[in-house]
């Protein structure tokens, strides 16, 4: 099974926001898939983009870098980008890298679409 099949990234309209839902491990071998998807979504210039990490079991610094890059693009395009659903292990890397204050992070998709 290839990486693109394991890491499916779904986009769907969710109460006016674009919902991006990566799955599995987001590491050096897989973060390019997420990066390309976020790039494609941002090309649509949505008002709000929610990245639901509920099904992400693991993330390394390449995943973080992908999200930092997306956040910087979102700010330039006036897109509100919100992260949600991250488990303790994924949250830990945001804290280690001191990036948990750089992002808007909430618990659920419902909170994310209204944050």
């Amino acid at each position: 099974m290839g990486d693109t099949e394991i890491v499916s990234v779904n986009t769907e309209a969710h109460q006016g926001a674009v919902l991006v839902s990566p799955q599995g491990d987001v590491d050096m071998s897989r973060s390019p898939v997420l990066r390309q998807t976020l790039h494609d979504v941002q090309a649509r210039k949505p008002q709000r983009m929610v990245v639901d990490l509920a099904n992400v079991d693991y993330m390394d610094s390449s995943g973080l870098a992908t999200l930092v890059e997306a956040m910087r693009s979102a700010k330039k395009a006036d897109t509100k980008m919100v992260l949600c659903g991250m488990n303790d292990k994924v949250r830990a890397i945001f804290e280690i890298a001191r990036l948990h204050h750089f992002f808007t992070i909430v618990d659920s998709v419902d909170e994310a679409v209204s944050a």
Partner: peptide, 18 residues
């Protein structure tokens, strides 16, 4: 340094922090 928020370059910091 982590004061400059940008993609990449976090690996060694993470290793030393953990």
């Amino acid at each position: 340094a982590l004061t400059d928020i940008k993609p990449g370059g976090l690996g060694v910091h993470i290793i030393r922090e953990v």
